[in-house]
Design a protein around this nucleic acid. Structure first.
Lengths: 343, 343
DNA sequence: ACGTTTTACTTAATCGTTTCAGTAACGTAT
DNA sequence: ATACGTTACTGAAACGATTAAGTAAAACGT
């Protein structure tokens, strides 16, 4: 029995008689043959049947981050339609990033999701010369990019607060660099950030505030290496205990903002009467919070779906129009109000 | 230059002189060689560097289900520690389940997460004779099983309501079979369920109620093929509009229960004063709801982590003690109270 | 009956590695 | 000077499929 015939039995039933096919399956069962080996088949056919998603942090953290989950949901919609699997790859936090998993991962292409400039994992992925798309960051010449106008979006939310009359600001930022730093980030550190998104949003705030005559140097930026409610809480507590106390806190993510609201409350103050709080992302939790959070909506699911579709097109060597930036929108809810006058 | 030497340059630096190694890397760069091909390497080494997770429904639905996300978080903790990727595989809803992706997926083992009896995807995975573990369902002889005491846990929450004095019950169930049925499920359908978990939990309710003298045939069970808040809402509305109106609604998941609470409120009734509602899972949202939801806690993350660890042990051919069922606990919160007497 | 197409298989090359078993060349102990 | 152990590399056989090309037999048209 030639291997070619066995292969045909599994892959091209029309190439052989039905009886021989049955006979082959019978003997396969008897011999404990489990059907064509996925890896050997992939090697010969030059396709892996899966796309890889690179995530900055631990996956366990991705699953705890609503924005990441929504994004993955979008990507999965695209891969599922194509009958592909979704391979999640991630880096350990901190420095010990081991690109081996990326080098050895059996995929047809990569989605790079929000990683830092010069990340070894990204470099390992690019070296493989597979089709790839980048989402949010880093910007890499020659690769399709899916993202939003971070700078403009951040500016719009800051302008909203300016319009309400606020002049004393505090900012809570997620990581600017993958060095696990937490604390007040001076302008030098802000500008040196390895995360494009962090840089852009801070610049957006800055331009809005400076346009209103607020000196950026006087605005404390508390950077926390995580983007969780706990981080937001800690950061906001730090900002609120320094003088002069800000009347509003700008947060780079909703998770941080939700934590900041907790901090405000735990200090006996009220949102938005005493302190206004804004976020960024418009995750579902933002609307459900009390008070509901003023934030910037960005289309997480669509971002994932678009990234998936563009990657698939690249893999199939179709060419899709170069993606443009996705739309965002300022969503004003109950967490912002004119500054109280009790200070 | 022999291929063996190139291979050694990448895999065993000690096998060749440092200068030749450098020279090889140089030429590799010049020729655009991206390093050892992942698939060929996997074929030769007999390892894929990833484990597959089989999910019943669309992945986009998995990412929307807090319990599934927590579970995946647990699995990812185990795979990450081992430097493996996590390959997510899923079925389309309804009948058109195409096992091709499962057959062709390049993985070292499978986690079967809460699938129906006789699912073609599960069968395809088992045919591959790779290491596998099953979580929640289906029970398959010879495979390690990770789950909880569904029947006993369901019984305990029903007993809690009995103890409060309730005698008129309504039940909201998620899918009993993968046929997309929604509506009142009679006992015949309940017993014929292809989902072990559905069967067990309903039996648990039943035994508690019958022990208190409530005829199970009089308890309407509304089955919805999805386990979402919308489904719970629709199901509860149906239950509350039939006579005699139940004083409490037992839900097979927290998502359903959260929806049921919405339904109660939208009918101008109050939880728990008019209607008590209970869930199952204790997802984070349950504690945050108003009123906070009485439910059964099960350790989703641990379940995932344990499944991952056991699968890894199987892959490495270590033998780990056969896993026992994980503990659950009745968590009484504000959504349950003695029945109101206004009916 | 003869040439031609179809059917049903088989042969052999290929995908890109890894790895075992060599084999020279060289330094070292006796 | 002989034997022996290292070091640095190469040859060739897997790993387990797919697939283009080839072949023998059967079916077909005239």
């Amino acid at each position: 029995m030639s291997p070619a015939t066995v292969s045909n039995a599994y892959n091209r039933p029309d190439q052989l008689s039905a009886e021989l096919r049955e006979q082959i399956f019978d003997t396969a069962r008897r011999l404990g043959y489990a059907g064509p080996d996925a890896m050997a088949r992939g090697l010969r056919r030059r396709r892996a049947g899966a796309i890889g998603v690179l995530y900055e942090d631990r996956l366990s953290y991705a699953f705890a981050d609503p924005a990441a989950v929504l994004f993955l949901q979008g990507v999965s919609m695209a891969t599922e339609d194509a009958g592909l699997g979704l391979l999640l790859l991630s880096g350990a936090p901190g420095a010990e990033r081991d690109p081996e998993a990326v080098r050895g991962s059996v995929v047809d292409g990569f989605v790079v999701y929000s990683m830092s400039d010069g990340d070894p994992l990204v470099e390992a992925a690019l070296e493989r010369r597979l089709p790839a798309v980048v989402v949010d960051q880093p910007r890499i010449a020659g690769l399709p990019f899916i993202g939003i106008e971070d700078r403009e979006s951040a500016r719009s939310v800051a302008e909203h607060l300016i319009a309400l009359g606020h002049r004393r600001f505090g900012v809570v930022s997620f990581a600017g660099s993958p060095d696990l730093f937490s604390g007040i980030a001076d302008t030098a550190r802000q500008e040196a950030a390895a995360y494009e998104v962090t840089r852009s949003r801070l610049r957006g705030y800055r331009s809005a505030l400076e346009a209103a005559g607020v000196r950026w140097e006087d605005v404390p930026v508390y950077e926390h290496h995580e983007s969780t409610t706990e981080a937001g809480r800690a950061a906001a507590e730090a900002l609120l205990s320094r003088g002069p106390r800000p009347t509003t806190i700008l947060c780079l993510s909703d998770q941080l903002a939700l934590g900041a609201m907790e901090a405000v409350r735990s200090m006996g103050l009220s949102v938005p009467k005493d302190i206004s709080v804004v976020g960024f992302d418009d995750v579902p939790e933002a609307a459900r919070a009390t008070p509901p959070l003023t934030t910037v909506r960005q289309p997480h699911v669509e971002k994932g779906a678009l990234a998936g579709r563009i990657l698939l097109a690249r893999i199939r060597e179709e060419d899709l129009p170069e993606p443009k930036l996705l739309p965002t929108r300022l969503v004003v809810r109950g967490s912002t109000a004119p500054p109280g006058d009790r200070f």
